[in-house]
Design a protein around this nucleic acid. Structure first.
Lengths: 149, 149
DNA sequence: ATATTAAAAGACCTTTTTATCTTTTATTAT
DNA sequence: ATAATAAAAGATAAAAAGGTCTTTTAATAT
């Protein structure tokens, strides 16, 4: 569905957000290790995202990445479009350039529903909301490790 | 969503089926022209699909491609998997290798619904059913051209 | 028979995606 | 000040996707 670059970016952004909530600023080495992505590729991706303002960074000792609090509720869609373009969100399943209601491809209706659902997902979720999902899942999971006697 | 190769294959297969219904066997040149795909790339794609049995072909004068009547109700999924693999139908939206109910990615639930819908579409439709869609649309469209006085 | 037609085979090329590495610049703890 | 740390920049390279071309094989109409 998404490109590798997008997957790494999403995983990394959620990881950064989770660490930021603990008052930490992870560096590339930590991010790459935790999200299981190649170090240099991860570096390049976040360098680009920093330049585009999706993430902030600090150089030097104690430096690392953090998410601008003003941007933490930005829909995933904006981030994904910045990385891989909007083809997935507007394109035709058959690859036709002029597929619409008046000139529909053979899957027009069925594919339209899927595309709508994809749009709904990425427009509705944010890095913040995904981090919260993880947090509540982790909490639920760690509860199983609680000694309940 | 799909790879270019898959898009061309789907468009071409539906075109072949539509022509077969008119007792015609289109050649590569005609198919490529009609589906607006590069000639040699189209040739390669259908050569491969012929080898895999998704389509039959005849060489020489009057030759061309046609769909084995026994295969015309084969789900699109089989065709698509043969071309680009099954990643789209089983993979995690975050790109995690071990994403499941017990170890879900932050989008697990939401993405699962989309993946299910994709699977439903490609498992339910066939080249035959898509050709029928086109036919009924074309009919509806050409009706507008009918002089109704 | 043979000329013509059309697919099969496979070598080759280009672009995009994915990944790696080196050098430079900025920051901070000491 | 300076040593250590970490991101920025940018060159390079490997792999996959997308596309092109030439030669060979098979079929058929004449």
């Amino acid at each position: 569905m998404f490109k590798k670059e997008t997957e790494y970016a999403l995983r990394g952004m959620v990881y950064i957000q989770l660490q930021n909530l603990k008052e930490r600023r992870p560096g590339v080495a930590e991010i790459a290790r935790e999200i299981e992505a190649p170090y240099f590729f991860t570096a390049k991706i976040f360098q680009r995202l920093a330049k585009q303002g999706f993430v902030k960074s600090m150089k030097g000792k104690g430096g690392g990445f953090f998410i601008d609090p003003e941007k933490k509720d930005l829909p995933l869609k904006e981030l994904i479009i910045a990385i891989e373009g909007e083809e997935l969100f507007i394109g035709c399943g058959f690859g036709l350039k002029n597929c619409d209601e008046n000139n529909p491809c053979p899957m027009h209706h069925q594919y339209g529903m899927i595309r709508d659902q994809i749009n709904q997902l990425v427009a509705g979720e944010t890095i913040q909301s995904l981090a919260r999902n993880t947090l509540s899942k982790t909490l639920a999971f760690s509860r199983e490790n609680v000694d309940e006697r």
